[in-house]
Design a protein around this nucleic acid. Structure first.
Lengths: 114, 114
DNA sequence: TATTAATATTCAGATAATCGAATGAAGTAA
DNA sequence: TTACTTCATTCGATTATCTGAATATTAATA
C-alpha cells in the first residue's frame, strides 16, 4: 500500500523528467518564465517549425507542466508552477560548473544567468 | 557563438533529464542519498534483477550523475553532486501537491518525505 | 589453479519518442 | 461566405530506450 504509492510517485516523477528531457521543451519552458506567450511568439523566438512547437507544447500541457488559454485568435501558454524553473535552474547550475571545471577553462568564466 | 553555447547547454540539460527519466534510476538516486552503496545492496533493496540495476547504474555513471569506486570485491556507487537530489525534491514536492489537490483527497494527507 | 561472488556487457525484441509533411480546425475580418 | 491567421493533429519513417536472457569480467578465496 505505502510501497505501491511510492512506486507510483517514482513513475510520475520519471514521466515528468521525460517531459523535460528535450532541448526544445526546456527552451520553451524558459521562455515562459516571464509570463504567458502566444504560440506564434514561441515559434518566432525559437525559429522552429510551428507544428513542432505545437507538438511540444501539447505534450507539456498534457503532462501538466504548462497550461493553455485562448485569447482571441491566439493561444497563450504559461507555466503551471514556477518551481519547475527552480528545478531546472539547479540542474543548469550543476552543468555549468561541470563545464567550467572540465577543462573548458578557455571560456571567460560563465556568469550565472538569471 | 553565445547562441551556440546556449543550445549546447539546453542539449546537456535535456540529456540530464533523460538520465533521470526512469523510475528505477530515480529510486537508485534516492537510495544513494545517505552515502555510497554496493551494487549488491541496491539490487537487494530494489528487488530488481542485477543486470538491470547494473545497466541503469552504468548509464548514470556515464552521464556523470553517479561515480563508482571499487572496494575489494564490491563496487560502491555514490552521487557526484547532492544537488541532483535537491532538484528531485522540488519536482517531487510539486507532484505530491498535484496528487493531493487533484481529488486524491481520500489519501491521509501526505507528509513530505525527508 | 579452480571456484565462487560481485558486477558488467552484449544481444534481440518490444515499446516509445522525434520530426517533417500534410492536413484539419477555429477564430477573425472583409 | 470567403479568405486569412493561428494553432492542432495525424501519419509514417527514423531513431532511441527498456528489458530479460545469456554471457563475460574481475577479484577474493579455497
Amino acid at each position: 500500500m505505502e510501497r505501491e504509492r511510492e512506486e507510483r510517485l517514482y513513475q510520475m516523477q520519471a514521466e515528468l523528467c521525460q517531459t523535460l528531457a528535450d532541448p526544445t521543451r526546456l527552451k520553451l519552458l524558459t521562455l515562459l518564465e516571464d509570463g504567458p506567450k502566444a504560440v506564434k511568439v514561441l515559434v518566432e523566438v525559437t525559429g522552429q517549425r510551428q507544428a513542432k512547437i505545437s507538438q511540444h507544447l501539447g505534450l507539456m500541457r498534457q503532462r501538466g507542466v504548462v497550461r493553455a488559454e485562448r485569447v482571441g485568435n491566439e493561444i497563450h501558454y504559461s507555466l503551471t508552477d514556477p518551481r519547475f524553473l527552480e528545478a531546472c535552474r539547479i540542474t543548469r547550475e550543476i552543468l555549468l560548473e561541470q563545464l567550467t571545471r572540465q577543462g573548458n577553462l578557455a571560456v571567460p568564466l560563465l556568469v550565472e544567468d538569471r
